[in-house]
Design a protein around this nucleic acid. Structure first.
Lengths: 160, 160
DNA sequence: TCAAATATGTCAGCCTTGTTGACATAAATT
DNA sequence: AATTTATGTCAACAAGGCTGACATATTTGA
């Protein structure tokens, strides 16, 4: 699977000890975040595949449903991707009737984005298994503990 | 940015109300996980770019450093990607001296993966900002609370 | 012992989703 | 009237997934 021939024996520059918490780094949480996110996204991914959509469509459908009437600029800002990237998936969602555009009421250059009923249903269907997974993971944790978990997750986000 | 012309006025199938917790779904945590992960990965992404590497290289370097001597099969299992996908990034990491291969001690078909000192340094450099972010987010949360956070994250992972 | 299974590597091609750069249009703003 | 803003679009490219096919060396099992 690689080039440089495998050695029979570790050479002097081969490190055999594992990297661990003793390096002063919280590898446990680093890895749990990776695995948690990997599995968290696997549920909707399976559903999306049935629709011929991908994770990018999920994000768009999600945020438009969370904030109907948002502009394209709002969405670009939330997703932190380029408009050319957004264009592709947004076009597909509009063409297949999951999202509608409405001229801005004050500023007619704007294209306000709204879900259709079909779009709302899709968003809910995608959120359901994720919410179930969260509920499961929160089981046995009281509201005080849940508050701390929210605080932690919020604290992981850049504050701009 | 899309096709179907924008309407002046929402039609009958345009949903204007936001999707909210009242739908019985924990959108708050769903979104916090998305934003937290987005920002959590942005720190190493910036470092990786300087090396001409991507997120895929990060994962490989990370796990090989966490478990030196792991086999290719172990890694595939951890990452849940195909060997062809892994091959590309692994080859680059081996060719540029971040990872070594050693013939399996019992099974000579295996290629045990080990970091070099350069590979160990890279893994640590990538983990550092992530650990800093975690430490920040845990600030003011006592060890009992931290235990709950770990429990929650662990609970989000598929148990197989 | 020999056939089958296993661990790994590799070639070729495809898809999604990100990127940059350039340019177009309509509407709002100054 | 000139400029800025919001959006759309074309073209090209890159990373990192995927499938399918096939090759090699080694181990295992009948």
């Amino acid at each position: 699977m690689a080039s440089e021939r495998a050695r029979k024996i570790p050479d002097s520059d081969t490190i055999t000890g594992p990297m661990s918490e003793s390096d002063g780094i919280d590898f446990d949480i680093i890895e749990m975040l990776y695995f948690a996110y990997r599995d968290f996204t696997s549920d909707p991914d399976a559903i999306l595949a049935r629709f011929g959509f991908g994770r990018a469509h999920h994000r768009v459908v999600h945020f438009v449903n969370r904030q109907p009437g948002m502009t394209v600029a709002d969405l670009l800002d939330t997703l932190r991707i380029t408009k050319q990237s957004l264009a592709r998936v947004l076009k597909q969602l509009i063409d297949s009737g999951y999202i509608h555009q409405v001229e801005g009421p004050n500023d007619r250059r704007q294209r306000r984005l709204y879900p259709t009923s079909k779009g709302r249903e899709l968003a809910l269907e995608l959120a359901r298994p994720q919410s179930r997974r969260i509920t499961e993971a929160l089981r046995g944790i009281d509201s005080e503990g849940q508050k701390l978990i929210r605080q932690f997750l919020q604290g992981m986000v850049n504050r701009d």
